[in-house]
Design a protein around this nucleic acid. Structure first.
Lengths: 145, 145
DNA sequence: CTCGTATACTTGAGTCTGCAAGCAGTCTAG
DNA sequence: CTAGACTGCTTGCAGACTCAAGTATACGAG
């Protein structure tokens, strides 16, 4: 029987491919694009700094810069400066971004439903989440080496 | 509480980064490189076709071709032709490849131990593996849509 | 105030990967 | 036997991501 680690690798590859392909085809968004939109949609003022974003979706800072470039170009996100620290450049979700995020969520949540809710009971889902939560969730050492 | 899906994404990102970095630093191998070596080491005759390899480590065929280019260049893997079907080009683990795979395994298994065995009991590990195994494990539709 | 260090972000260069197209070998229907 | 479909592999191109270096701003010690 393949070990948990191998299955995690495969499940990740299989799921992200499927979900990314669906988001692309239906909404013209990458899975990463979508993750950024969701993070912003859930943030205070729909506004987050590059650094925060990088931490939340586990991407390097330069990755975030370039990802946002694309989203800014198509008007889903806009730049906003911080009044108290001029180094930070907020990424703010626009109205269009909010709308697109909601549309894409339908597709994505349907994928998540098929992948998770259709295969597990509520208890199983809770326990899967609990177990996965014990694995490292951050790139940097701090959280559990 | 973050859902299972989010935790899976993060755990994957955190773990692969850590493990990939270790393999690179200590042995000059990518995590993908290592996975290929392991698959070959476990295969009959230490020999596998490109297609088989692609399926096993969930990479596209072109990805495999280029990955093997690198491993061939440094002599860890060699090409071998198939007597019954001249389309297939086997990738065969060399002695050097076998040796390198064993060395790298030490580093990698230590990482796996820290990430998994130190955090879960045997029962928990079994149940994590079982739950993960119910998620799609293949890119193509067939296995569970 | 100012120098040194730390932080937020951007940019350049390079790597890894996938998709689509192409080539070569295989198989099947007629 | 042969035309057409299929399979295994490689290649051109483009995209997404990282690392390292660079710029601008902030902040603490003296």
């Amino acid at each position: 029987m393949p070990a948990a680690w191998v299955r995690l690798l495969r499940a990740h590859a299989a799921l992200t491919r499927r979900m990314d392909a669906n988001l692309r085809n239906v909404h013209g968004l990458t899975l990463s694009d979508y993750e950024v939109l969701v993070q912003l949609a859930n943030a205070d003022d729909r506004c987050l700094s590059r650094v925060d974003l990088a931490e939340r979706i586990l991407l390097s800072q330069s990755g975030i810069t370039r990802l946002l470039e694309g989203l800014e170009r198509v008007g889903l996100v806009e730049r906003a400066s911080c009044t108290t620290d001029r180094r930070v450049v907020y990424a703010r979700l626009t109205e269009a971004g909010q709308a697109r995020c909601l549309e894409a969520a339908e597709t994505h949540l349907e994928d998540v439903r098929r992948a998770f809710f259709d295969r597990f009971s509520e208890d199983e889902l809770r326990s899967l989440a609990e177990l996965l939560g014990r694995l490292p969730q951050q790139a940097r050492e701090a959280d559990g080496q």
